[in-house]
Every structure is written in C-alpha cells, then in structure tokens.
C-alpha cells in the first residue's frame, strides 16, 4: 500500500448556485508529481484554495500526513508543511527579491539573519542570485513566477501546490521552469500542480487528475488520460470524442 501524504474525501464547495467542487476524492502520494488539469472554470484553483485553507469546504474532509486539516487556517497550513503559489503572482512588490524570500523563510527560522541565509540558498538554487537586490514590483512575469516558487520553497514545505506556474511564460521560460520543478522533486518535495499546458503536464507528471464542472472525470498516468474519451470531450466537445 503506497503512502498517502494528502487526501481529500468527498470535498464540496459551492458559490451561490454554482457547484465549484463536487464530491472530490483525491490522494497525493509522497514524492510524486501529481497534475490537476481541466478546462477553465473546472474548479482546479478552488481545490487548491480548499486544501491550502484559503477557502472552507461546505462538506468533506482533508487529511495531511494523517492529520485532519479541513478547517485549519491558511497560515497554519503553511506551517504544517503545505505551501502554495498563486496563479496571478503575488509578490511583495516594494521589497527586494531577497527580502521577499527572506520574509517567507522567517516563519520557519529562528532569526532574521538565518532567514536571510536560507533566502540566499534558494536564490542560488533557482539561479536568481544576480537579481537579489532588484525590487520585485519592477520585474517581468517570468521572474515573478520563479519568485512565487522561491517564496513557497522558503517555507520548507513537504507538499508544494503550484497553481498554473507556467501560464504566461514564453517557450524557453517554460522549459526552464519544468527543469526547476524536476529539481524540486529531487529535493524530496511532493508536487501537486495545476496546469493548462499539456506539453508541460505530460512529461512532468506521474499521475494526472482531470476535472470538469467541479467533478473528477478521469485519473491516471498522463498517456492514459490523454486518450480518455471523457477527457477529450471535456476539452474539445462531444463531436471529438
């Protein structure tokens, strides 16, 4: 029986009349790269928001390392070891890149000085060191996407939720990012990633979950779900199934 790092059971969330997430059961295994795909509006980011404590589910349960975290607050969830990035990047605009990462490291380190050392290490790991004194608000989106990941890494997560990390990047940036994701996995961090870009999902993910209108419609290795008629139908319409 493979280990379970994160598990959701019958997760439900509606916004008014709209069922954003419906009866979601999913499992994340330690060490894997799990993909979450689906057409726009399928509920992927909502799932992330529910797991990371930014939204409360209407019903259902979430377990992390066998501990129930369903209604735990966002900052507590981070401290427990789940970090997330945001689809629309949220840098601390007036601070330098270094300070952005340093403050992210602070909640899990003893001092401002030690947090700075951690930040410098992460900058190095992501090849961002030359930019460390740049003001975040002045950088283009490619670097800001990396900064999102850097800030998340600084919190020493066991599970990293990446919300569309490569949206808006040019092809060479995409390749570089995929390499970064692989290297993060090599560090022993489990990755759960939402993405649209199939070219990135297929080679990276061990497993993929497909969502449509809030429900899981398929699950399995990338090559299987790519051929699944339900998945094709969801993306391209009935006539292509």
């Amino acid at each position: 029986m493979t280990d379970i790092l994160l598990e959701t059971q019958n997760l439900n969330k509606r916004f008014g009349g709209l069922k954003a997430v419906s009866k979601m059961d999913l499992v994340v295994h330690p060490g894997e790269i799990l993909g979450l795909i689906g057409p726009n509006g399928a509920g992927k980011t909502t799932v992330f928001n529910l797991i990371s404590g930014f939204l409360r589910p209407d019903s259902g349960l979430i377990y992390f390392q066998s501990e129930e975290i369903t209604r735990v607050k966002a900052h507590e969830i981070c401290r427990k070891g789940i970090a997330r990035t945001f689809q629309l990047v949220k840098p601390f605009g007036k601070m330098t890149i270094l300070k952005n990462i340093q403050v992210s490291a602070l909640s899990k380190s003893d001092s401002v000085k030690k947090a700075e050392l951690i930040a410098l290490e992460i900058l190095d790991f992501l090849n961002l060191s030359p930019l460390k004194e740049k003001i975040a608000g002045e950088l283009p989106v490619g670097y800001l996407k990396l900064l999102e990941v850097a800030k998340a890494l600084a919190t020493k997560p066991k599970l990293l939720l990446l919300d569309e990390p490569i949206a808006g990047l040019n092809p060479s940036e995409v390749v570089r990012f995929m390499e970064v994701i692989r290297r993060i996995r090599e560090l022993g961090i489990t990755i759960f990633l939402v993405e649209h870009v199939m070219k990135a999902i297929m080679p990276l993910c061990d497993r993929v979950i497909v969502m449509h209108y809030g429900e899981k419609i398929a699950e399995g290795p990338p090559y299987e779900i790519a051929k699944d008629p339900k998945v094709i139908q969801a993306y391209l319409g009935v006539s292509y199934a």
């Binding site: 966002a74 840098p91 909640s107």
Partner: peptide, 20 residues
C-alpha cells in the same frame, strides 16, 4: 518583516505562514 508582508499582500503573507 511580517508587517511589511501584510501590507504588500495580505493573502500572500498568510500563504507563507504569517498569522495576519
């Protein structure tokens, strides 16, 4: 540092473990 983070982006500050 925490206060500056909260000022810049409260959600992002929560996501990095700050009890805003």
């Amino acid at each position: 540092y925490y206060l500056s983070a909260i000022r810049e982006d409260e959600d992002a500050s929560r996501a990095i473990g700050i009890d805003a």
